[in-house]
Write a protein that binds this DNA or RNA. Sequence first.
RNA 1: GGGGCUGUCGGCUAGUUUGGUCUAGGCUUGUAGACUUGGGCUCUAUAGACCCCGGUUCAAAUCCGGGCAGCCCCA
Length: 526
Amino acid sequence: MGKLLSWMQRKREALATGYFSRQHQHLWFSTVRFIFWRIETTGQIAMSDVGVTVKKNEDFSEWYTQVILKSGLADYAPVKGCMILREDAIAMWEKIQAIVNRKIQATGHRNVYFPMFIPEGFLKKEAEHFEGFTPEVAWVTQGGNTPLEEKLAVRPTSETIMYATFAKWIRSWRDLPLKINQWCNIVRWETKATKLFLRTREFLWQEGHTAHATKEEAEAEVKYALQEYQDIMENYLAIPVVVGVKSDSEKFAGADYTTALEAMMPDGKALQMGTSHNLGQHFAHVFDIKYIGEDEKEHKVWQTSWGITTRTIGALIMIHGDDKGLVLPPKIAPTQVVVVPIPYKGAEPAEIAAKAKEIADKLREAGLSVILDDRQEYTPGWKFNQWELKGIPVRIEIGPRDLKQQQVTIARRDIKQKSFIKENEAVAAVEKLLEEIQNDLYAKAKANLEQLTAAVKTYNEFKQVMAGKGGFAKAAWCGNADCEAKIKEETGATIRVIPFKKEEPQTGCIYCGQKAKDVAYFARSY
RNA sequence: GGGGCUGUCGGCUAGUUUGGUCUAGGCUUGUAGACUUGGGCUCUAUAGACCCCGGUUCAAAUCCGGGCAGCCCCA
């Protein structure tokens, strides 16, 4: 009772001292809120929360998350760092799968599936490999109610479990080359800084694994995989990449050397788009993968492994997306064309609907993926926004005006431009437009990459780049890992790649000034 | 690896500073209907939330501790 009284006392004091000022505050905030509400409800651009509410160049990180969630590509899962890939994301991944499968199957690789559980002993066999992966391995220690005698790793990559089996499969030179690939999920237990698509504890990938009789063959395979990846990134995803070799400190744990593709994101951070490793004979030694050659002698095999992941979809979103949402390259878009009928009352709605269907069918016959959005319950404006959010490359509108003039209205997503095409030329025009969009997206991304690439001559210049907008800094490097480590410590930038296209260093090492070995691409990275 | 911030209907949020008229308000979305349809139209009705566990207290969305999740910054 005493406390109640003291509360009433305090409340009375509060009322006496602060009440009116709070009322004023409240009034003021209400007014401001009302003004924003007017802007939102009357403005051309701003609208409800259905769309993306931040601008790409104002809050990139928030923009990225919103685009993914609101376009319906993915969602968060209940477990930290795990994501749900939704219909459109899987559809895109399936497109990538189809392209990769077509390419590698044409060159004699075949798909397999190995188990996701790897005995600890396997993982431990190659010391460097184990050391590299062990900090982020998830372990199964119990089955049902019974503790396991040997704990099982949930695969962080499949070299060890595959190569234990390779040792059984490979006996003779006739068994070589062995070229397999698998599509699967991978678990790497990231502790923090997880991000949709880019860094998740579980992700999907493709891992190719090959074994060869000679070093030269393995080298050719490493190069082959990387070239195909480059083709996919540039000619399908419309993402320009820099290709080359990783420095020793960045190479795959257990490899002789790693080659990689690196792309540049709009926020100035690099993203690794794929890797192709030359494993040399390290695994062949520890797993005892040997064959009897034509020379009747015993030899160890030479191996490669290479992979790309669902991460590439994250790059796609970041590079091509805009303030209205996703922008998808036509070759990867799950749906390439959406047809929206615009039915006015009293303006032959049945005819418009029929015409829309006719156009959609014709486009489908031409091999395009088409959605006919004839939902009655949404207005055309609402549909336009929705399909733009989802990044569908081309939209066709068919309304009374079009009907009368025997034309269709074609709108392209990337530059939001409308044009009017005679109805009987529609299919050809759309096909041409899709190609144009594909090329324009690449050209634009290429221009951005060039703009975010700077050749630097001094360490000061280097630091300025990294402290500013970021991007690639092309700089001379002596080859010493200490310099690399210092640079990372001081600027956050690492060597992303030492390009295949060698450039003569114009200066000494950017850090120590000693004679430079290479020109390397440095950047902060995801 | 270190530091900081946040968690309220499906989404955005008000309320938390100062525990109590909060039986948690608004907008949006969802559902039903009407009206519309060339850029997220309008109206009516209706549904829907305090992250989890514990503590303090007569009383917790509000304070404290822990957990889980998300975000940001630095290395």
